[in-house]
Design a protein around this nucleic acid. Structure first.
Length: 437
DNA sequence: TGAAATGTTGGGGCG
DNA sequence: ACGCCCCAACATTTC
C-alpha cells in the first residue's frame, strides 16, 4: 500500500488542485497536511491578522469536508521541514506532494525540503498549479525572460490552449484520503493569533463583472464592476485556471489580461528574487528618497488632504482591500508627491492587503516608482485631482471613505501639487545625473 | 495604465 | 474685403 502526504500551502481547495490530483492518483492513502510556518507567522506584528483568520477558516472548511470521508486535515504549527519530515516517518510515506511556490523564501525552503526528504527515502513531488505558465516556460526567442509585459502576454496567449485543456478533478478520489481522526483544527490562539474582525469580501466571477469590465474596473465606486477574487487566488480557494476559463468564455480580454499581469510579475520575481529590496533597474537605487516620517504617517492614515488618496488609504485600513485604480494613485502619491521610497509603501501594503502577493505588490510598486520592468517613466506623475475628476466625478467613493469630507475636520493638502511634482522631477533627475557622472 | 508646457491652427470679432 | 488679434481646440514636446 502506497501512502502519500499532500501538503496544502497556497492552494486551499480540493477541486482542480494539480498536486492533490496526482497524490490521489498515485497513492492508496493520502494524508492531507497544513503547516502554519512560524518563520512567516513570527514576522506578522498584528496578531489580529485578517489573512491568518481567513486561512484558518478555510482550513476548518477543508477539515469538515475531509471528515465526510472519514479523514481529517492535520494542522500543525512550527518549522515545516521538521514537521513534514516527522509526519513522513510517522506514516511511513513514500512521497510528499505539493504545489510549487515561486517566492524567494519558498524556493529556499523547498530546496532544503527536497534534501531532507531524500535522506529518509521519501520523494518530494512538486507541481505547477498556481500559474498557467511558470518561470522558464514563457521566454523570448533568444531564450531570455521577458522584461516587457505586452510581448509576454502575446506569447502567453499563443500557447495557453493546451495547458488549459488539462483537467485535475479530485472529487471521485477523495475516498482515498487516509482514515484519520486528527481532532479539530488547532485554534488561532494556539498559534498566537486572534480572530480578526475584517472578513474577506465575497467574490464575483460572473458575466455581471466581465461585461464592460474594461470600463467599470476603473471606477472605484462601482464595487460591482470588479471581481474581488484576488484573496481567493492568493490562498487558492479558487483555482487560477478556473478564473481564466470563466473570463475567457465570457470574452473578457481585459480580465484575462489582468490575470496574465499576475503571472508576469511572478516570473519577474523569480528572475529578480531580491526585488523586494532592490530596484530592478539599479539606477533607481541611487535616488535620494525622503525620510519624512510625518508625511509617511499621514499617508498611512489617509490624512494627506488629497481626497482620492485619503479615501483609498482608509478603505485599505478598514477593509484590507483597495481598488486597483486607487492603489496606483496612492502609490504614485507616496513616491511622486512625498518623495518617499516605494519600499516603505510596499511594506505597508504588505501588512494590510488581504490579497497581498509579494510578486504583484513588489512588481507594481516598482512599476509606479519607475524602477521596475515595463515601467512608468519617472516623469509620469499622476495629478490626484485629475484622477479624481476622471474616476470619481461624483465624489461618491471619496464620500464613502472620508466621513469628515468637506468639513473643517478634513486636513488641508500636506504638500502643494505643483511644487511636489517639481521636487520629484528634480529628485529623479539628480539620480540620473549622478549615474552619468 | 500621464500631465504640463509649448506649439499650431483656424474661426470669429473687430476696426 | 482685409488684416489683426484673441483664444479655443488640437497636436507635439517635454518632463
Amino acid at each position: 500500500m502506497k501512502q502519500g502526504i499532500f501538503w496544502f500551502r497556497r492552494d486551499l481547495r480540493t477541486e482542480d488542485n494539480v498536486g492533490l490530483f496526482h497524490a490521489l492518483q498515485e497513492c492508496d492513502h493520502v494524508i492531507p497536511v497544513f503547516v502554519f510556518d512560524t518563520t512567516i507567522l513570527d514576522r506578522i506584528e498584528d496578531k489580529k491578522d485578517h489573512r491568518v483568520t481567513f486561512i484558518h477558516e478555510t482550513l476548518q472548511e477543508l477539515h469538515s469536508e475531509f471528515e465526510k470521508y472519514g479523514s481529517s486535515l492535520i494542522v500543525r504549527s512550527g518549522d515545516p521541514q521538521e514537521i513534514i519530515v516527522q509526519l513522513a516517518k510517522e506514516y511511513d510515506v513514500s512521497g510528499v506532494y505539493t504545489n510549487r511556490d515561486y517566492e524567494p523564501y519558498a524556493r529556499v525552503r523547498d530546496e532544503s525540503m527536497t534534501t531532507a526528504l531524500h535522506e529518509i527515502d521519501c520523494e518530494f513531488k512538486t507541481y505547477k498549479d498556481h500559474v498557467v505558465f511558470e518561470p522558464g516556460e514563457i521566454l523570448k526567442d533568444n531564450g531570455e525572460p521577458y522584461m516587457v509585459y505586452t510581448p509576454f502576454k502575446n506569447k502567453w496567449l499563443a500557447h495557453f490552449k493546451e495547458e488549459m485543456t488539462r483537467e485535475f478533478p479530485s472529487s471521485k478520489n477523495l475516498t482515498k484520503l487516509a482514515s484519520l481522526s486528527a481532532g479539530p483544527v488547532m485554534s488561532l490562539e494556539e498559534i498566537g493569533f486572534e480572530q480578526s474582525s475584517i472578513p474577506p469580501d465575497t467574490y464575483n466571477i460572473s458575466n455581471e463583472v466581465f461585461h464592460e469590465y474594461k470600463i467599470n474596473r476603473d471606477y472605484p465606486n462601482r464595487e460591482w464592476g470588479v471581481s474581488r477574487i484576488s484573496p481567493y487566488l492568493r490562498f487558492g480557494q479558487v483555482s487560477t485556471r478556473e478564473a481564466y476559463r470563466k473570463a475567457m468564455s465570457a470574452g473578457s480580454d481585459h480580465f484575462v489580461s489582468e490575470l496574465i499581469w499576475r503571472e508576469f510579475f511572478q516570473h519577474v520575481l523569480w528572475y529578480f528574487p531580491n526585488s523586494k529590496r532592490k530596484a530592478i533597474k539599479p539606477l533607481y537605487d541611487t535616488v535620494e528618497w525622503s525620510r519624512n516620517k510625518k508625511h509617511f504617517k499621514q499617508w498611512c492614515e489617509g490624512k494627506t488632504g488629497y481626497p482620492i488618496v485619503d479615501a483609498g488609504m482608509r478603505e485599505l485600513n478598514e477593509t484590507g482591500y483597495m481598488h486597483n485604480r486607487v492603489r496606483m494613485i496612492t502609490a504614485s502619491f507616496l513616491c511622486k508627491h512625498l518623495q518617499i521610497d516605494w519600499r516603505w509603501g510596499e511594506e505597508y501594503f504588505a501588512k494590510k492587503l488581504f490579497d497581498y502577493e509579494m510578486a504583484s505588490n513588489v512588481g507594481n510598486w516598482q512599476w509606479v516608482a519607475g524602477s521596475g520592468t515595463d515601467t512608468m517613466p519617472y516623469f509620469r506623475i499622476f495629478n490626484p485631482y485629475t484622477q479624481q475628476e476622471k474616476f470619481d466625478p461624483e465624489e461618491e467613493y471619496i464620500a464613502r471613505w472620508i466621513s469628515e469630507y468637506k468639513t473643517d475636520e478634513y486636513p488641508d493638502p500636506i504638500v502643494d501639487h505643483k511644487e511636489a511634482r517639481e521636487k520629484t522631477l528634480e529628485m529623479y533627475k539628480k539620480a540620473v545625473k549622478k549615474k552619468e557622472d
